[in-house]
Each structure stands twice: as structure tokens, then as C-alpha cells.
Nucleic acid binder design. Structure first.
Lengths: 226, 226
DNA sequence: ACGCTAAGGTGTACGCCGTACGCCGTCAAG
DNA sequence: CTTGACGGCGTACGGCGTACACCTTAGCGT
């Protein structure tokens, strides 16, 4: 019996793009070698001819997704450049919601990662930041430079909205959380910590940090003597 | 044959403390129901009489560890209070290195979590922060409020230090990373992004953010009209 | 003292996972 | 036409979480 001629052969690239698509639609937890193989209409072990193991698969997926980011484009000044770059990274992370978790458990020193960092660092250095300040500034941006922060309130698997009486109980037990969330008088409006504009929060924090950076740089910040 | 009388019975508490200790010494990945059971000298299924499943086990571990943090103690002003609180949380996270990863994949709305947030939010509100500003400020602190950030450079499983010739290659490919890391002239001093004082970086970023917060609050920050 | 009941530890078994290893069909280069 | 490498296949192993039925034990009311 001849093999189905319509089935084109596997390749590392085909495996990785399929994996990315699979993760995009079914979530990271659904990605297993067996299921991915089934998705490609192939036996599990066939994948191992193209990726050495599952870790390598995830590495490849991350690299592939990160590549969508393209080269850095300069804006009017360092601030605009950095801001745009980080917001672009955030968009990418929102497109591939599995990517954050993958990056978090991955070695940082892959070429793609380093290239990304290098391009950001270059912006600061070209703008006259000292190496020391640049260093701390990159740390301060932390994971925000990757377009994400572990938000305080965003829940990996959100609970069902609490019932009204639960809400009342909650707002008694944690009055400040409740007040801050604007749940005080009108209960039916928003759940605890939900209903807030994540994009706004991200930019608020980003600008907070960029302001601090600008302030230290223009004040000629120097490292403590230690 | 009588059962070993020295073996005291299991309890939820005994299971959880054993799990925490096990994770502390063997790492999170080593924690499996089977291994934990073996550690407690018991058959795997025995655990299920005390925790409903592995997720619940992790929940319990996180709660137990977080409980070490104790109640918030007020300092001179909101800034000192928040700073001390967050640095204490960071210490906790360093004591239980598995905790960060557990928190990252956990629902945020457990009582312990909410209580912790509530106590922090209370500080801001008592100091006259508007609810809106408090809200954004908590977001801006992001995971830093839990005592951790996904650092840009700290590697979940760090690679072996590169060889000298690799280092040269690296510093050519990523000149800005290299320069920032101070690898420029003297190669043997520090690896890329390593050899920096994590505690200092954490506090630098924290103070950057606290400065920004203080600035916005004293300027009477108000939410945009949208 | 007795037997009931519920709580807690046990044993077996199932379906999933990643992946080592050996086989075999296909196809291009010699 | 031969040969060898490449790529897909089949089988198998050990580990995981956990459903379910069973048995032991402890504590209780009578």
C-alpha cells in the first residue's frame, strides 16, 4: 500500500509552527508530544527526528514566536523607542498567551533573547546612560521588558464570579480590597479586582518606571560607593 | 502483625509541612504525590484522605508558607511600611525558592492572598491615597508586592559559564549586553549579566517605583476622564 | 464488654505522559 | 543497481495523578 502522497514530510519548521498554532488554540497544557503528533497526523516518535525532546520543542516555539517581534525601530527619543518596543512585546505576549509561562521557565541566554536585550540596552547606551545605570534600569524594567508582568490580580484560571452574598462577605473580610475595587456601595458593578483595564494598568506602571528612569538619568545618577 | 506504633497518623497539617520541607530541600519538580508519600512512609493514596488532589496540595503549601509572613507592622510612614513589607515578602520567597513558581500558577483569590493584599492596600488608603490611585499603584507594584519579579537575567536553570572564546564571540554578537555587564576589557571578571547584586537591583527598582508613586500622590494624581 | 461506624491507610488498576530502541520503507548519490 | 542515510513506525518502559474497592483501627453508645 503506497503512503498517502498528499501528506508532505515533517520538518523542524513544520513541527514548530504546528506546535505554536496548537498552543495558541488549545493552550499550553494541551501541548503534549502525543497530541501534537496526532495533530500532525503522525506517530509520536516521529517528532523526535526534528526536536531532541520536549524542552527543545518549547525552546523552538518560544524562539519562533519571539521572532515575530522583528527588529527594533527607533523613535524620536529613547523614551519613545523603549516604550513602543515594550508595548509591542506586550502585544506579542497577548497574541500567544502561552508564551509568558514558557519564557518564565526558560534559560535567558538564547541568541534570540540576547539579541532582544541587546537592542534595548543599545538604546539606553546610545542616549548617554552610563553602563551602571543601564544595568539597573534593565533590572528595574524586569519582566516588563518582555511585555509582561505577573499582574497582582490576573488569575491564571479565574474563579467563577462570586455570588452577591459571597461578595458581601468578601467585602467585610477584606474591606480595603473591596473599597479599592469600587465594590463599596454598588455590588453588581465589578468583581473584586476585575473589570479593570489591563492595558491602562500596564502603561501606568510602565510610565511610572520610565519617569523614574528619566529622573535618575538627568540627575546624573551614580552607583553607591559600596 | 501489629502496625508500627511509633508511626503517628497523618493529618492535613503533617502532609503540608512535610511537602513544604520536601520542596525546600529537593525542589518543586521533585514533589510528586508518590515521592511525598514515600517520604512520609505511607502509600500514595493515603495522601488523598487529607488533600483532595495535587493542586490542593500546592494550594496548601503556598498558604502555609505565606503564613510565615505574619501580620503587617506599621512603620513611620506609608513608604517605609510598604517597603519593609515587600522586602519581608522577598525574604520569604528566598527562603522557599519553589514558592514563586507556585504562586504564578495559582488563583489569586485565596483568603491568605486577599488578606495580604488587603493589608497593603490599607496602608495606602489610610495615607490618603484615592481608591483609583491605590488601584493603579497596586498594579504598578505588580508581582513585586509578592516579593519577587521575574528578573531579566536570573535564569531558572543557569547555563555553565561560557568559555573565554565563547565569551568573546558573545560580546561581539551582543556588544551592548557585554558592555553593560562590564565584560568589555577584562573578560575573566563576570559572566554576562551575572555577578550582580540581586538584592540591590530589587531595591533599586522598588525605590524607583515608590518614588514614582510618591510623586503622583503628592501631585494629586487623578484618573483620566476616558 | 460489645459491636457499630466512620476515618484513615492499602492495593490494584487505568490512562496519560515523555522517550529509548530497533525496524523498515524511501530516495538520492555513487 | 547498490548503498546508506533519513524519516516515519511500533513496541515498550517507567513515572505520573488518581478512581475505586477493601481492610484496619479507634472511638463511641449501649
Amino acid at each position: 500500500m503506497p503512503p498517502d502522497p498528499a501528506r508532505e514530510r515533517l520538518s523542524r519548521e513544520r513541527v514548530l509552527t504546528a506546535a505554536v498554532a496548537f498552543a495558541d488554540t488549545h493552550g499550553l497544557d494541551a501541548v503534549s508530544m502525543r497530541r501534537l503528533a496526532a495533530d500532525l497526523d503522525v506517530v509520536p516518535m516521529a517528532l523526535y527526528k526534528h526536536v531532541s525532546d520536549k524542552e527543545a520543542l518549547l525552546d523552538g516555539m518560544a524562539d519562533l514566536a519571539l521572532a515575530e517581534l522583528g527588529p527594533l525601530v527607533d523613535q524620536d527619543d529613547w523614551r519613545a523607542t523603549v516604550r513602543a518596543r515594550i508595548l509591542a512585546a506586550r502585544e506579542l505576549l497577548l497574541r500567544h498567551r502561552w508564551l509568558r509561562r514558557v519564557l518564565e521557565t526558560r534559560p535567558r541566554q538564547t541568541p534570540t533573547m540576547l539579541a532582544y536585550l541587546d537592542s534595548l540596552i543599545a538604546v539606553f547606551r546610545r542616549s548617554g546612560f552610563s553602563d551602571a545605570l543601564t544595568h539597573h534600569v534593565m533590572h528595574a524594567l524586569g519582566s516588563r521588558a518582555w511585555g509582561f508582568t505577573q499582574e497582582l490580580f490576573d488569575d491564571p484560571n479565574p474563579a467563577p464570579p462570586p455570588s452577591p452574598e459571597q461578595l458581601i462577605q468578601l467585602s467585610q473580610a477584606f474591606p480595603h480590597v473591596a473599597a479599592m475595587a469600587g465594590v463599596a456601595g454598588h455590588v453588581d458593578e465589578s468583581v473584586v479586582g476585575r473589570g479593570c483595564d489591563d492595558q491602562f494598568e500596564f502603561e501606568f506602571a510602565l510610565d511610572l518606571i520610565l519617569d523614574g528612569i528619566a529622573e535618575r538619568q538627568s540627575a546624573g545618577w551614580e552607583p553607591p560607593v559600596r
